[in-house]
Nucleic acid binder design. Structure first.
Ligand code: FES
Ligand code: FES
Lengths: 146, 146
DNA sequence: CTTAAAAGATGATAATCATCATGTTTGATG
DNA sequence: CATCAAACATGATGATTATCATCTTTTAAG
């Protein structure tokens, strides 16, 4: 559904939002350990998110990643757009060069509700909410056990 | 959503089903021209579909690909399983090693209906129906114009 | 029974995506 | 103002996916 890059981006953002408080920035090492992801790769991804104003960062001693109150309102769809682009929403499910309402592929109309449903979910879901749920322990950001 | 391999697989199967009649097998060249896909690649894919009993083939003079009446009842989900496996249905949307109901990721329950909807569509759609619609000219298998 | 046209099989190359490594810039702190 | 810990930037490697090429097997037909 999403690229791995995008999966890591979402998990990292949620983790930062769930951990950040009292101005204490979160280090990349900490992040990667808690979302079980490769450090260098996630570092690169977070730089992109930072440029897109989805997370914030600070260099130097006591630096790290953090998230502002406004950024907590980021919707999942913003992250998907920033990383994967709009392909999943506007591309043809069967790979035609153009997804078109007038010259559609055979499954266009069958897929439309699926895609609209997906889009709606991503549009309606904000980082704030997901981070709260992580804090409450309702959900996890890495597989437990083995 | 699907791999390119899977997209080509579905398009090729639909094309074969829409063209095959009077025992005249369809050649790979014909197929690829009409679905706008790379010939060698699709040839390889069709061999896999053939082994999975999704399409049929015959070697030699007047050989080619064709589809039986039973094979026309193939559901899209069968093709997806044959080519892409079950990842799209059972994998975690955020890339956790395990998608789990008891230790889910933050978007598990939000995605559940999307995935179920997707699965239902793929389960309910048969090649026969799609091929009929192509014949009627309601849909296309390659982008028109530029 | 030879030929040629077709799919089948296998491996090679190319493109894309994911991951790793290395050095540079920034900024708090003593 | 020197130091060091952090993110930033860029490029290199590795893995996976997509595509291409070459040869083999099958089979209708002359
Ligand atoms: S044309 Fe294929 S999904 Fe719209
Ligand atoms: S745990 Fe992530 S989708 Fe089920």
């Amino acid at each position: 559904m999403f690229s791995k890059t995008c999966e890591y981006a979402i998990r990292a953002t949620i983790y930062i939002a769930s951990e950040y408080k009292n101005e204490e920035k979160i280090g990349i090492h900490d992040i990667c350990q808690n979302i079980e992801a490769p450090q260098h790769f996630v570092a690169k991804i977070l730089q992109v998110l930072s440029r897109h104003d989805i997370v914030s960062s600070k260099k130097g001693v006591h630096g790290g990643f953090y998230i502002t109150e406004e950024q907590r309102d980021t919707r999942l769809i913003d992250i998907v757009y920033a990383i994967d682009g709009d392909h999943v929403f506007t591309g043809c499910a069967l790979g035609l060069k153009q997804c078109s309402e007038t010259k559609p592929c055979p499954i266009h109309y069958k897929f439309k509700p699926v895609r609209e449903n997906l889009k709606k979910v991503l549009q309606d879901t904000r980082i704030r909410e997901l981070a709260e749920n992580i804090k409450k322990g309702k959900f996890v950001l890495k597989a437990l056990g083995i």
